[in-house]
Design a protein around this nucleic acid. Structure first.
Lengths: 235, 235
DNA sequence: TAAAGTTGCCAACAAGCGTTGACCAACACA
DNA sequence: TGTGTTGGTCAACGCTTGTTGGCAACTTTA
């Protein structure tokens, strides 16, 4: 019997690691469905059946390949007014250091398990930071979501969709622009006067330039209202 | 011969429209590869071969289904200081009115043609707005990309990944938070002091709280640098 | 040395995919 | 009424997918 301590190095550990690395690359480059087990196995230089043996199935492989720790910096150790810049810098680092975050983001768009993992990462790892630094604990989840939205959006523009201006922008310029945004989402109160128009934008309403209220959009959109249901897991 | 004016209504127009609507739903819900032609045809109540007849192939179907006009409001007609709120409100409207934007975003993550279309929409439709309202024309593309990142990120969090706090946040609160951000990206100068550290974050560098410079992240990330290549179209 | 266990390759399976072409019914126009 | 065009179904193709089980080679243990 070979059931020794779990720390015992096995001969297959190198293979497993090769599979994991190839999987991360493929998932990051192609997304969940286009990253085929066969292609991953070919990259790792082994047979597709080995992937199944070591990770059960494709879902298991993705779960193993997308394990991730944001390694967010200690929150109390730095001045709170620089938290925005530190966070943005750190996220850019984490995004460029390895491909797990890109893989996770690409996969999460079409795979519900990956989406749940992405939600969990931002909730359980960014959430506490917001909780520690924001003025009102009840607002922490919303503030974390706002920060996530800006970080995620820049990652989409820069690393996934590759908008040329976002790709070409130097790192420090990205930080300069995004840091105040994140800082505000984290610590500042929500000041902006809220527009009073609700979801159904009446087209016939007069739009002769209200002075303080935010004016409505010019060429009104036709009333083809339609709830945007985005059910992801379909039977 | 029946080759009349192109405006002549044909009997198959209803079918074509049904296909297009089903395609938009499926692409929005499932992304490009998981939205199968068979499923779309089933939703539309016709045979899969009809899809091929009317749209050539899957790519052609997606191209037709993802045609999109942002319908951005007239730029000069509104006070420049409200541009941020108007833009955010308008984007939320467009995102919730129909599913094309969600479909485009979901597909663009794994399909290069869809990504190019997404880039084109933001470049050709949001770009001019930035060009008209930002102080320096040379900065317009970057400012448009920054706005795109915040809009896109909120759309990801709210409509695609469905982070609970982002989903539950009322529309007007989203506008209140995002409007100043977009406004700043559009018209304000880039003020934040830029951090001096470059991409390689040296771990050994002393971090005894520089007064004005932005401090580095606490627990340094190990130097497993690795260029994040996200080649999407692979041979 | 013999048995047991591990590592890996090979061939194949069933299912689903995009796509094609043959074929039929309804309509339009002469 | 006959004829050509259009709208649509059906069955199948070639291919790729995730997944499985059998079998050979090697390593460890007894």
């Amino acid at each position: 019997m070979m059931t020794e301590a779990p720390g015992a190095p096995r001969r297959s550990d190198a293979t497993k690691a090769a599979i994991l690395e190839a999987a991360r690359e493929r998932f990051a480059a192609d997304g969940y469905e286009r990253a085929t087990i066969r292609a991953i196995a070919r990259d790792a230089g082994i047979d597709p059946s080995m992937v199944m043996r070591y990770y059960g199935n494709k879902e298991g492989l993705f779960a193993a390949a997308s394990e991730f720790d944001l390694r967010l910096p200690e929150l109390g150790a730095l001045p709170a007014r620089h938290a925005g810049a530190v966070l943005v810098t750190h996220f850019l680092d984490r995004w460029e250091q390895d491909e797990v975050l890109t893989a996770l983001l690409r996969a999460a768009v079409t795979n519900e398990a990956a989406a749940e993992r992405a939600r969990a990462i931002f909730r359980d790892q960014l959430g506490p930071v917001a909780l520690a630094l924001c003025p009102d604990p009840a607002e922490a989840p919303r503030r974390a979501a706002l920060i996530s939205s800006q970080i995620l959006g820049m990652a989409m523009a820069r690393y996934v969709l590759r908008f040329p201006p976002a790709v070409e922008m130097p790192r420090d310029e990205v930080v300069s622009w995004l840091a105040p945004t994140v800082q505000r989402y984290l610590t500042e109160p929500c000041t902006e006067a809220r527009p009073q128009s609700r979801s159904e934008a009446g087209q016939g309403a007069g739009q002769e330039a209200g002075e303080e209220a935010v004016p409505d959009a010019g060429p009104g959109t036709p009333p083809t209202a339609q709830t945007a249901r985005a059910t992801q897991g379909r039977p």
